[in-house]
């Protein structure tokens, strides 16, 4: 039985007293949030399971470290739990989808943490080993990954956030604009500056890749 599905018992043939189970659509984020607002921990567990992976991914790109990314994700979900009653769905007085609200929390927490003086280096971003690669290829891939990550971390924070949302998380510029509380034009401008800066920094790297 799927834990995320709302299941209701319906009578298929009332005359014969037969019954069947009807599995309805998985509960929406809005539905889960309404339950979380009343203190439903099962709904919270379901919501965490659904969004944890992407939240950690975004936070890791913004923080430059998997460990920091996980911490930010943990804190973001703690805020979701604490403030669930304050969130309003679209049409219910709110103006943002749950994910927009969640990613805004993640972005704000990441920016706050990056402004603190001490932070971890990129060294703990692990790369999964591709068994098809030989040792040299693995080292080369790791070097390219580190070079890109380091260049990302040198970007001004708003450029980095815009690039992480639009390029890596593949969000629309409209959604990114809502998360960052900016206009679509401003997001586009941040993206242009971010990619131009990265192109300059990484010219050697990507020319080498193109030739390879």
């Amino acid at each position: 039985m799927q834990p995320n599905a709302a299941i209701k018992k319906t009578e298929a043939c009332p005359g014969r007293k037969l019954s069947r189970l009807t599995v309805t659509e998985p509960r929406s984020d809005e539905n889960l949030m309404a339950a979380i607002a009343t203190g439903d921990q099962f709904a919270f567990a379901r919501l965490v399971e659904r969004h944890l992976s992407r939240t950690v991914g975004l936070a890791t790109r913004l923080m430059g470290s998997r460990a920091d990314g996980e911490e930010v994700a943990q804190e973001a979900f703690a805020r979701v739990w604490t403030h669930a009653a304050r969130w309003r769905p679209i049409g219910g007085g709110g103006n943002a989808r749950f994910t927009t609200w969640l990613y805004r929390i993640v972005v704000n927490l990441a920016i706050d943490r990056k402004r603190r003086p001490v932070h971890a280096a990129m060294d703990d971003v692990d790369e999964p080993m591709d068994e098809a690669d030989d040792g040299f290829a693995q080292i080369h891939r790791r070097q390219v990954s580190d070079a890109v990550a380091a260049a990302m971390m040198r970007l001004p924070e708003r450029q980095r956030v815009a690039l992480a949302l639009c390029f890596f998380e593949e969000m629309s510029n409209i959604e990114a604009a809502k998360i960052m509380a900016l206009s679509v034009g401003a997001i586009e401008s941040l993206l242009v500056r971010a990619r131009r800066a990265l192109r300059q920094e990484l010219t050697g790297v990507y020319e080498e890749l193109s030739e390879g």
Binding site: G57, P128, S145, V148, F168, L198, Y206, L209
Partner: peptide
């Protein structure tokens, strides 16, 4: 396209893996 390919080499492993 070349820049995209380079940027996508930045690996952030999926925690679900």
């Amino acid at each position: 396209h070349a820049l995209d390919t380079t940027l996508l080499r930045m690996s952030v492993p999926d925690i679900e893996s």
